[in-house]
Nucleic acid binder design. Structure first.
Lengths: 343, 343
DNA sequence: GAAACCTCGGAAACCGGTTGCCGAACCAAG
DNA sequence: CTTGGTTCGGCAACCGGTTTCCGAGGTTTC
């Protein structure tokens, strides 16, 4: 990114300059100006310089539509969030936008709002605009039907995955994240671990619960009770603690399916006179700073590294656009962030 | 440059067809096909139909670059978030994207990350892509320097405002929101209101505090103590309550500059044995569902209606693109959402 | 001094649509 | 049969660049 002056006044006003105006000012033909600006052809250095300074003087910026028309490339990708732009989409989008911007790509933002009609509308729009590729993101990790069949451009699914195993999908290793959480609890001496999480029909909830159970089993341990499926809410976390305490089975750790649940659990434990982490250690999921840091005590949590995931998705898309596709599912590790709730 | 693949799949969702292919299939000239598809010129209905079904059969979508090239319009706008995409930008962006999508416009997403260099880079990119207009958003309502001088396309500032009073800015009426909050507390019989808010150097904090003080004064009342400036965090809310209780001045309501602060206040009040709303009524700001609903009790809060604000900004931009600019600042009212914390 | 070779830059085709202009074909009227 | 008016659709210029091809002029070589 070359440092430019903030106000190139002559070029800023009115209509953008065209290459023919540049050529006229430099006293050359249009084609020659094009070569000079792109470092093509063989020109006398002096001529090239004359064109360059004319372009600079006029604040010339090539019209991308014209460039697109004969290169076939738009240097643009579409990003479709299948559901509403939310807490999970944002870091994904930021990571992707970052990686694409570094590759001189611009990003079309499309918010499909869980509506298949809108989704297809945006798909058609993007194809009409001849984007070089598409990233599909969403809130849930569950596999979804491909967004289209036999598309002329590469598509990468980020966070969500495509039901077609040949499609390129980038997903977090949620099971691995859950294992890391359990391992950390075991390493700090906990043996009686309960699990409170979201609804059973939610893919993430079952994957994480299953991984937690299996990891405990490989150390010959059982979960305290069954995995407690409920909602992704603080209220459910509080309620679950009341149920746990009522059941009477002792427990010294709770692994939660989300930070919101964990925070509800923390509040309810405190209200019941149980100390965190002394009596009960607590691990959340998502590493959502708003929850994890405001919780008392601050929450150990599993971070899915969504921004890096978005960046990876963008890199894979760029590679596919440049002719090196990486079909199939790709998994990225989660990271455990240790804070006071398990100290 | 790989050679263009010709139709290998019978599926029409495949590679983009050109208008000349449509014309060939329909047995007409290219220009005629164009007229048929756009309802221009005078064609026999039968001919028009033949072209339309040919286009349908090939899944024809006009190449937007070509359309752009001779209309000069891209049907695209840029959206620059000056700071990181976050909690405030999202509803703004969603609202704007919604309104623009309804107008057949696509949106370029640019995340400037509080970096002026990135901002100018994106501005140049957008201008090079000949977007029809630009929306500038950000996290803070404070006026900022114009993003560029004498730009050839309209610019609308949403949430943040431009320091140039001739620029079109759409901002929430934060002072009005604060007044509504105070009025509601007064209407429910509270007389001793404290105010806990964010840092004094933050524009929103001072605007809201000033409005609250003035509204109380117009009823002949004073704030309990001075406005308490601190951070936008729960921890500060908790600390402020300890300070308030320590100071000894009785209070029956706390108006908070954010929901996060309010939640901290709620927790600390409960820990101190004060009941909400019986002993102390509580009003937050932002109506951030995650905080306002999870708070115990659920929080009365001021909603800045950011999504509607984004929609308004987009509508103003569309109007400006179509030749009817609305320069200067525009203010949109806030809405008070009443919940149990002031019941 | 002539032929071969370079250098440099202009002319024009092309990308994929849109649109103004013009002429062919058809019809009715004189 | 000619004239005038209409209808319909083709031709070609144009949008703003990129790229290929080619030729003018200068230089080298024998």
């Amino acid at each position: 990114m070359p440092p430019r002056k903030l106000s190139e006044t002559p070029g800023n006003v009115g209509k953008p300059a065209t290459i023919s105006e540049v050529a006229l000012l430099a006293g050359v033909a249009v084609g020659t100006a094009s070569k000079a600006l792109n470092g093509r052809g063989s020109l006398r250095p002096e001529t090239r310089q004359r064109v360059l300074s004319a372009a600079d003087q006029l604040g010339f910026q090539p019209n991308r539509a014209a460039v697109t028309l004969n290169s076939g490339r738009t240097y643009t990708v579409g990003m479709i969030t299948t559901d509403t732009i939310g807490r999970f989409s944002i870091p994904l989008m930021m990571g992707a936008e970052d990686a694409l911007g570094a590759g001189e790509m611009s990003v079309f933002l499309c918010d499909a709002r869980d509506d298949p009609i809108r989704e297809q509308y945006y798909l058609r729009t993007l194809l009409s605009r001849r984007v070089d590729g598409i990233i599909v993101t969403g809130r849930r990790t569950q596999a979804r039907p491909p967004i289209g069949a036999a598309l002329p451009i590469p598509v990468v699914y980020a966070f969500i995955s495509s039901a077609d195993p040949h499609d390129c999908s980038v997903v977090p290793d949620e099971a691995g994240g859950a294992r890391k959480a359990v391992e950390h609890l075991l390493a700090t001496g906990r043996r009686r671990v309960a699990h409170v999480t979201g609804p059973e029909h939610h893919h993430s909830a079952t994957v994480r619960a299953t991984a937690a159970v299996e990891r405990l089993a490989s150390d010959g341990l059982d979960l305290v009770g069954a995995p407690m499926f409920g909602e992704w809410s603080e209220a459910w976390g509080r309620q679950a603690v009341r149920m746990l305490l009522g059941a009477g089975s002792p427990f010294d750790a709770v692994f939660c399916g989300s930070d919101q649940i964990a925070r509800g659990v923390a509040d309810a434990l405190q209200a019941a006179g149980r100390r965190v982490p002394d009596d009960v250690a607590l691990v959340g999921f998502d590493n959502w700073d708003v929850m994890a840091l405001a919780c008392q005590p601050p929450l150990t949590s599993v971070d899915m590294e969504l921004e890096a995931l978005g960046r990876t998705a963008a890199d894979l898309l760029l590679a596919a656009i440049n002719g090196s596709p990486s079909p199939g599912p790709h998994t990225r590790p989660c990271r455990l962030v240790i804070r006071d709730s398990t100290a």
